[in-house]
Design a protein around this nucleic acid. Structure first.
Lengths: 198, 198
DNA sequence: TCGATACCTTACCCGTTGGTAAGTCAAGAT
DNA sequence: ATCTTGACTTACCAACGGGTAAGGTATCGA
């Protein structure tokens, strides 16, 4: 793949995350790369397709993280735990993907409801299968397990996108407090889900 | 207050919630009301001020809900519980305010960090005081209590904005499942916070 | 050496955007 | 009866939005 293409995706991902689909212009993205907006149109055709490509790449990244060789050797419980810890860790270092994910959640509200073609679906489905392989979850319905997974991923996302606000409101030490507290709380949430809220 | 003014705020709130600040044009809002966009500019001056007025109204509504006479008669614990149940109930019937709140959270990430002037601050501060009046929380720092409150309000919001996606992905029965499950889980979260994660 | 293809540029298009200027018009106040 | 004020309207504008058309240039296989 082209080098420029990836650079465009990087810049677009960052900007879409920061300001949303409508808040970013092609010229805007191009400017940060020192190219013209027609370079973007050359590679992706339209703004929507560029946006879609960004989502695609993220979706694939998530799936890859779930399917590493190291992951396959673990028991389902530990696989889920390990993946979610890693997710939370990455999100707290850089929340831009979470911001994009949540924006997509908001914007997609009409489309998703009918189309069922959400770009995170494959990833969430895969994670759902991991959960269903866990002890106590083998009898659960798909919808039930899916919702549990959704809750786990969502909690991490919401925490991640709140970082700037919490730092602004509570200061540096206030944010450290919630980081620590949330880490503990998140482990408890995983426990609760794995034991199926019993 | 003018009747039109409130109608404009209603329409603007809905549209900003659905499509975000940049996704909505003044002409767009005006069209749904059968007026010209200059009517909006007459009342609010600029698009930003209109948006700010929408947020202001929401902030005041939240504060009012917290300061009803009925609320004042309750013990702090029950006051918090009652308010949060009501919040969750309203959010699950109409998530537009939650969508707006989360969008603001995303967009404000740069501004909020420095300015500390988030429009929900007063409301969250007030709720924080309620929590600090609860048994076991009187010794906690402001930041600690604030973070706990933030977590409670955020959990409800995230649930609310997920409704369309979950309905789309899991179908009607899948959504009913998570609604029920989330209601239970939310009570547990409130319990956990009130007992200070012990 | 030639043609094709990928990559990117300059030049241009036109609908939409937030916003201004100026006028209309009804309701009160003096 | 006149003046003022608030609540709009029509008319207009410059800037920006995504997108098209066409051309230049480097690379590469035949």
């Amino acid at each position: 793949m082209s080098d420029t293409r990836d650079q465009i995706l990087d810049a677009a991902e960052q900007q879409f995350a920061d300001r949303g689909f409508y808040g970013v212009s092609l010229a805007n993205i191009a400017e940060t790369l020192g190219v013209t907006k027609q370079a973007l149109l050359h590679h992706f055709g339209t703004k929507e397709r560029l946006y879609g490509s960004v989502l695609d790449r993220i979706s694939k990244d998530f799936l890859n993280a779930l399917h590493t060789e190291q992951m396959q050797t673990l028991e389902p419980e530990e696989q889920l735990r390990s993946f979610l810890r890693d997710l939370l860790d990455r999100s707290s270092r850089d929340a831009s993907r979470d911001r994009l994910l949540v924006r997509e959640l908001l914007d997609n509200s009409e489309r998703a409801a009918e189309a069922c073609a959400w770009y995170m679906r494959d990833f969430l489905d895969a994670l759902t299968q991991v959960l269903k392989a866990c002890h106590g979850w083998d009898q659960a319905t798909d919808a039930e397990a899916f919702c549990a997974v959704y809750q786990l991923v969502g909690a991490a996302s919401y925490y991640a996108i709140s970082e700037p606000t919490l730092t602004g409101l509570g200061g540096e030490e206030g944010y450290r407090a919630i980081t620590e507290q949330f880490g503990r709380q998140y482990e408890l949430l995983i426990d609760a889900v794995l034991s199926r809220y019993r």
